[in-house]
Design a protein around this nucleic acid. Structure first.
Lengths: 212, 212
DNA sequence: CGGCCGCCTAATGTCGACAATCGACAGGCA
DNA sequence: TGCCTGTCGATTGTCGACATTAGGCGGCCG
């Protein structure tokens, strides 16, 4: 087991992230340092340092001398974030297109089937979980640390957006065809097609969320 | 005139950035909070918050309970950073390819000529400055806030890398042809060619710096 | 003589208090 | 009545001190 150092700051980041996922904190809400500090039983210093990280990840909106707020994202900002993720992941997958074994391609198809399965049961939590696994495997071949850094950070932001609307986005068959399209593009080994498919995958979701 | 609030944290970020640019701080050096605080005549709190921002921008390497250090980037990490910038900017330019007026294309060629000019005079500071102007104009048409956010952050990191080696990278004619290739691809209006050209532009520079 | 163990120092991590600033509200003036 | 202005409360920005920990140094033991 990997030992990870958990400084208060990291715990605060995790705590706020959970608040965002569960919906206890919604767009427009203010994060008051005193309140968070007393709730967690610590002082404001680690809170403020955690804020810096959340701000840089786009999870919190900072207004000098006023406070930290949960961002109210405009439709365009939502699409922008998804598009950027698509650009990054599309390149990452395209670059490593010939490193996927047929077993791994089958795993991807397996995960797709599982997503369809859970979607039919309206088990959205599992759909999201398997979906994350799918995309993790997709980019697992790439070792561009800078690109992965940005991709992972965007994941957090998009994950929150997605969870705010899960269940209302895609039907089971749509989920299936959307992900199968990616696997098929991978099988084709056509770099341009792969990159375009992954991009479109994200832009489409971004647009859907944006128009809600 | 735009009034900008300058909190201590922001000033610290700027200060450290300057130290990095001037080379007063080099790879491997430790940033001691006490030292910085006393040098700037402030307490450690704003210093630590500034560190968070620098860490997230990849300008500082954080080791828990040990300290903050200027990163020693491996050749691969350097290439990764440049590649990522190329992917982002390549997409940004490609997407806005039909929004450039012929006057603006001429401006780009003008800037290219100026770069050649200053490069011949070994005026590297101006080459970098005009180069920044060139790329600013290139991505100025794009309004994807998320993509611009990441692009700008990477700029800081790459700028430092570039300034550590200026003068040893390209000859005047190379600078000219490298940038002219971008303008020509823009003129062609071929999306794939534009994106590929900009990508290659960055990957090439990354590789050059990496092998020094 | 070499390796292991415990102390010590110097750095980071955290705290509670004070200062500065913004936004809201109430009061006064035209 | 409507707008401007001064005050007030709440929240962020900053500070100096204390707690904690990593890594180096010296001594002890085999």
């Amino acid at each position: 087991m990997k030992i990870v150092r958990k400084t208060y700051k990291d715990q605060v980041v995790g705590h706020v992230y959970q608040l965002l996922l569960t919906g206890e904190l919604g767009p427009g809400d203010q994060l008051k340092e005193n309140l968070l500090a007393s709730q967690m039983g610590i002082s404001r210093a680690p809170i403020r340092e955690a804020m810096q990280e959340l701000i840089m990840n786009g999870l919190v909106d900072y207004r000098p001398q006023v406070g930290n707020f949960i961002p109210i994202l405009s439709p365009k900002q939502i699409i922008d974030s998804y598009t950027t993720r698509g650009v990054l992941e599309g390149y990452a997958v395209m670059e490593t297109r010939n490193q996927f074994s047929s077993a791994e391609l089958e795993t991807l198809e397996n995960l797709t089937a599982q997503m369809e399965h859970f979607a039919e049961q309206l088990n959205h939590k599992m759909v999201v979980e398997i979906g994350a696994e799918f995309h993790d495997l997709l980019i697992s071949k790439n070792d561009n640390v800078q690109l992965l850094e940005y991709t992972n950070r965007l994941s957090l932001k998009l994950h929150i957006l997605f969870c705010r609307h899960w269940g209302t986005l895609y039907s089971a068959t749509e989920i299936g065809s959307r992900h199968r399209a990616i696997v098929e593009s991978l099988r084709s080994q056509d770099p341009d097609r792969i990159e375009k498919t992954v991009r479109e995958h994200y832009v489409e979701t971004g647009s859907k969320i944006a128009e809600l």
